[in-house]
Design a protein around this nucleic acid. Structure first.
Lengths: 209, 209
DNA sequence: GCTAATTAAACAAACGTTTAATTAAATTTA
DNA sequence: TAAATTTAATTAAACGTTTGTTTAATTAGC
């Protein structure tokens, strides 16, 4: 945190705020705590972001883009199963990489408040949902997949990855791993990927014999 | 809220607090908001519960019992699949019936804070996890189930039910139902049950032919 | 007449935000 | 290049609110 450009400092504050908001929630974290953790004067939050609310929105907006990324990595494959796998892989990747951020997203979704931010998040999640929906629908049409409840199958995929990443403490306890860095390391990530692939093969795949 | 016994009034306050805490989180809700929503004087919260913190703990403790209930309803069945189905059914039932409460539980689990309450919740969830683990393990030993990743399979079950119940708004949007009372009505509950059963049959069941 | 329940008012502490002053950096002028 | 000027970044202190909690007085039930 020395001799950095302004945008770096702004990003650094956003990083700190993201971590705190994710771990404890928007209301639980005070501007004073953020400024202390980021080692800045409390007035700098208003100076840079305008308000605590705006800071929170900036934290979310900064990483709530894409969904094109998914479409791109999916498009490379031909079979529906491969497309689905590619999407799941990317999902796992993003959730492991940004699990603190995802905590914010899902906490926001769980709130029954119709804010502009909540709508925006819901729209983005729904967009991703539709991508997966189309893949499975096509797979069924192609007789590559069994006829399943598509909506609930997509929800299941998201729910599984989310369940894994949401609670670090719980994941450690269940997987019998030492700390969170292990629970979210490469080995466990591969394990989750393997499990999810097997589950989808079993659920969607048509026996070939 | 008239001519009720004291314990009823206490319970009513707990009901109101539970709803508000679940919808917006502990820190986001003030004692004044609770007292207003419950139509009581603000001092009554301290009078009945001691503090806002204690009220929150009472909200959680009131419904964080059982796990015997699961064991009981599971014990009636003989085959591993029936046991697992019984457990899943109960899980769905509880989550639909207490979905606001479950919001609190999972929000608490997502927080990276090692409070006494968090430990207690983690312990309870883990207890339930072990019940499901044993069922699947026995099923595998009996050659009734395929050899799967047991830990992740249990996590998947919980994650799916949770994903469904956590975000009412999202569930409505995805399932294309009008309002939340429909999304959490009997019809959709049966749909989720059916989906989860099929998923488990596909994932765990050994082809009989 | 006594205990329990309920109230309005007040409490200090913490909240998000703003102010006005100061330092640092960038730009312009000589 | 050096000094002068302007703009940007940073600070400590104060702002008015809201927070959870307590008090002391009052009402209700037995």
């Amino acid at each position: 945190m020395e001799e950095t450009k302004i945008s770096d400092k702004r990003d650094y504050i956003l990083d700190v705020a993201e971590r705190l908001f994710a771990e404890q929630g928007f209301e639980a974290i005070s501007v004073r705590e953020i400024s202390k953790a980021a080692d800045i004067n409390i007035a700098m939050v208003s100076y840079y972001f305008g308000s605590k609310e705006k800071l929170y929105e900036d934290v979310i907006n900064r990483k709530l883009i894409s969904s094109d990324t998914i479409a791109k990595s999916v498009g490379q494959h031909t079979s529906s199963m491969d497309k689905l796998f590619a999407m799941v892989d990317l999902y796992i990747e993003k959730f492991f990489e940004r699990r603190l951020f995802q905590n914010i997203i899902f906490r926001e979704m769980a709130m029954n408040q119709r804010t502009a931010m909540a709508e925006k998040i819901a729209a983005q999640v729904h967009k991703n949902f539709l991508l997966a929906y189309d893949i499975i629908q096509t797979g069924i049409d192609n007789k590559e997949f069994k006829k399943v409840d598509i909506e609930l199958t997509v929800m299941s995929i998201i729910g599984i990855v989310r369940m894994y990443t949401t609670s670090g403490t719980m994941a450690c306890k269940i997987l019998k791993v030492e700390d969170e860095s292990e629970a979210f390391g490469k080995k466990q990530k591969d394990r989750l990927r393997k499990h999810l692939r097997q589950l989808l093969i079993n659920h969607l795949g048509i026996e070939s014999k």
